[in-house]
Amino acid sequence: MEYFVHFLLAILLTALSYFVGSRIISDGVAIWQALIIGLSVVSLGALTEALGAPIWFIVLVPFPVGMLLLFLFLHEPLYTWFFTYLITLALYSVFHVIMSYFFSFHSLIPAWRLS
Score class of each variant (00 low, 15 high):
residue 5 V to I: 15
residue 43 S to F: 06
residue 44 L to M: 12
residue 84 T to S: 15
residue 17 S to Q: 01
residue 80 T to E: 08
residue 86 L to F: 10
residue 41 V to D: 00
residue 103 F to N: 05
residue 68 L to K: 03
residue 21 G to R: 05
residue 8 L to P: 06
residue 42 V to L: 08
residue 109 I to F: 15
residue 81 W to G: 08
residue 27 D to W: 05
residue 27 D to E: 12
residue 12 L to G: 13
residue 32 W to S: 14
residue 50 A to W: 02
residue 75 H to W: 05
residue 36 I to R: 03
residue 11 I to Q: 02
residue 89 L to I: 06
residue 12 L to T: 09
residue 69 L to A: 03
residue 20 V to H: 06
residue 85 Y to M: 13
residue 12 L to I: 12
residue 50 A to F: 01
residue 13 L to P: 04
residue 18 Y to H: 13
residue 15 A to Q: 08
residue 16 L to D: 04
residue 93 S to Q: 05
residue 50 A to L: 11
residue 35 L to G: 06
residue 53 A to S: 14
residue 29 V to L: 13
residue 49 E to Y: 10
residue 47 L to H: 02
residue 46 A to P: 04
residue 25 I to D: 01
residue 66 G to Q: 00
residue 49 E to C: 01
residue 6 H to L: 09
residue 72 L to R: 11
residue 96 H to P: 00
residue 49 E to A: 15
residue 82 F to S: 11
residue 9 L to F: 10
residue 58 I to T: 11
residue 65 V to Q: 00
residue 107 S to G: 02
residue 23 R to Y: 09
residue 95 F to H: 11
residue 9 L to A: 15
residue 75 H to Y: 06
residue 16 L to E: 09
residue 79 Y to C: 02
residue 30 A to H: 10
residue 9 L to H: 05
residue 33 Q to E: 15
residue 56 W to H: 11
residue 58 I to M: 08
residue 74 L to W: 05
residue 94 V to M: 04
residue 21 G to K: 06
residue 8 L to T: 11
residue 90 A to N: 05
residue 66 G to L: 02
residue 20 V to I: 15
residue 93 S to L: 13
residue 3 Y to F: 15
residue 4 F to Q: 08
residue 97 V to G: 10
residue 97 V to I: 15
residue 11 I to N: 01
residue 111 A to N: 09
residue 54 P to S: 11
residue 7 F to C: 09
residue 56 W to L: 14
residue 92 Y to H: 11
residue 104 S to W: 07
residue 64 P to N: 07
residue 16 L to H: 02
residue 73 F to E: 12
residue 44 L to D: 04
residue 51 L to E: 04
residue 94 V to P: 00
residue 103 F to G: 04
residue 41 V to R: 00
residue 114 L to T: 00
residue 22 S to H: 04
residue 95 F to T: 01
residue 74 L to D: 06
residue 115 S to L: 05
residue 38 G to F: 00
residue 7 F to L: 13
residue 69 L to Y: 01
residue 115 S to T: 10
residue 71 F to K: 12
residue 25 I to R: 14
residue 115 S to M: 02
residue 109 I to T: 01
residue 78 L to I: 14
residue 12 L to W: 07
residue 83 F to W: 15
residue 83 F to M: 10
residue 85 Y to L: 14
residue 94 V to T: 05
residue 115 S to N: 14
residue 60 L to M: 14
residue 103 F to S: 06
residue 2 E to T: 10
residue 18 Y to N: 10
residue 43 S to E: 03
residue 17 S to K: 02
residue 71 F to E: 11
residue 64 P to H: 04
